[in-house]
Design a protein around this nucleic acid. Structure first.
Length: 435
DNA sequence: TGAAATGTTGGGGCG
DNA sequence: ACGCCCCAACATTTC
């Protein structure tokens, strides 16, 4: 049996500037790169046309093409991680396993289990920060506690940032240390019960022209003003350090968005209860209406509010929704319809190509008012005002709701002023209760 | 990263 | 010339 180190790809699907991979390749043993299609995750996906599975699959094919040029190969497994590692320790004399940190609750449990399994065999499990710039408790307030308000967090973040934090890991200098073997066949999507989706994915090119004008253009859904890099940050096909360097030199507002990303990952790590409950517990007392028929209309984009419907239809058709519109539809669901933010969160989780638990949960709790540093509950978006400000020519609406112009367009699901007052009363009632 | 309600100001029409 | 009223525009407060 060959003595090797394993590098386990998860949300870091690239060979360049990869922290865990760098440390693996610098070690004493040839590195076998692996990926596991984790059935604990895949078995929960009910849409066999899930775009994300196709995205990952294509990223793996790219990795494989690069590795084959290096006379190495990716090994792709389909199954349960613990069983895969049992298999691997039988196939190789595994000297160490390297991987990058993942901060989601399921991933933490999984990695804990794998670490224990390896420890019993005397195999070190070495893990690294790779998907954010500051993680866990690297940014703490002066009282030594994690922040729960963004602005002071971001000040500390910027104060602590040095060029070193944004330096790339020069993995390419060590690529010759991959384990040499013939190209291994990758299991097909069909064998895993999935269907390849046809739609093209956003390019992973970092568009400097867009970043430069990000602050002025990011709020207009009809304008190409956002990076569209969310999915690449989610699966690690773009390096956060490389993007951080560009953001720093090109646009402070865009850099701020990267800080929000770190912020919500930090919140998820330190306050994992946010996954199932409100960050502020008094918000769990809100008496949601949770009308299923209204929820279905929101999902389908048939609320009779064109800006809301346009957003939901963009999401359903493409797996993407412009961020300004995400805020509008989230405010509408939680405030106008008084439907539990978790319902909306779950729907986004199912549909968004760039879905990230920390960011999605943070965004929904922000919109519903229940989150750390959230919008105050009385801040209720008026869909008509938002349209006037951010889609004044109705270009975005016309693109996604073409029937808007004619008489067939449905009446609003609920009248705005009535819904606003109802939301204010419902929230006030819950928040006045003693917790 | 809100919107509505309420308050204040000042220009202009008019007797 | 002056006071009064109207109301748009802006500012502040409230939800």
């Amino acid at each position: 049996m060959d003595s090797v180190a394993i590098f386990w790809f998860r949300r870091d699907l690239r060979l360049h500037d990869n922290a865990g991979l760098y440390h693996a390749l610098k070690g004493a043993y040839p590195v076998v790169p692996i990926f596991i299609f984790d059935r604990n995750i895949l078995d929960e996906l009910d849409d066999k046309h899930d775009r994300r599975v196709t995205f990952i699959y294509q990223a793996l094919e790219e990795l494989q093409a690069q590795l084959v040029k290096l006379e190495s190969s990716l090994e792709v497994y389909y199954g349960f991680p613990l069983q895969v590692f049992q298999q691997l320790t039988g196939k190789y004399n595994v000297k160490a396993v390297f991987t990058n940190h993942d901060y989601e609750p399921y991933a933490r449990t999984r990695d804990q289990q794998i670490a224990e399994f390896l420890q019993n065999k005397g195999i070190p499990f070495c893990t690294y920060k790779d998907q954010c710039i500051f993680e866990k408790q690297e940014i703490l307030s002066n009282t030594g506690l994690p922040y729960s308000v963004f602005t002071p967090y971001s000040k500390k973040w910027l104060a602590q940032l040095t060029p070193k934090h944004l330096e790339s890991y020069p993995t390419e200098s060590y690529w010759s240390n991959f384990y040499k073997q013939p190209a291994q066949k990758i299991i097909s999507l069909a064998e895993m019960g999935f269907v390849k989706t046809e739609q093209n994915f956003p390019s992973k090119a970092i568009r400097e022209d867009i970043l430069k004008n990000y602050a002025e253009k990011r709020n207009y859904p009809a304008v190409e003003g956002t990076s569209r890099l969310g999915v690449h940050l989610r699966f690690g096909t773009v390096s956060i350090r490389e993007l951080g360097r560009k953001a720093q030199s090109l646009n402070q507002t865009f850099l701020n968005e990267l800080i929000w990303r770190d912020f919500y990952m930090m919140i998820l790590w330190n306050f994992p209860h946010v996954v199932s409950r409100a960050f502020k517990k008094e918000y769990d007392l809100i008496e949601w209406r949770n009308n299923e028929e209204e929820f279905a209309r929101w999902c389908e984009g048939k609320t009779g509010y064109p800006i809301v419907d346009a957003g939901m239809r963009e999401l359903n058709a493409t797996g993407y929704m412009h961020n300004r519109v995400r805020m509008i539809v989230a405010s509408f669901l939680t405030k106008h319809l008084l439907i539990d933010w978790r319902w909306g969160e779950a729907y986004f989780a199912k549909k968004l190509l760039d879905f990230d638990l920390a960011a999605n949960n943070g965004g929904w709790q922000w919109a519903s008012g229940s989150g750390c540093d959230a919008a105050p509950y009385f801040r209720i978006f008026n869909p008509a005002e938002q349209t006037k400000k951010f889609d004044p020519q109705l270009q975005y609406i016309k693109k996604w709701v073409p029937e808007f112009a004619d008489f067939s367009y449905p009446k609003p699901i609920v009248e705005h002023a009535f819904a606003r007052n109802r939301a204010l009363e419902t929230y006030k009632k819950a928040l006045s209760k003693k917790v």
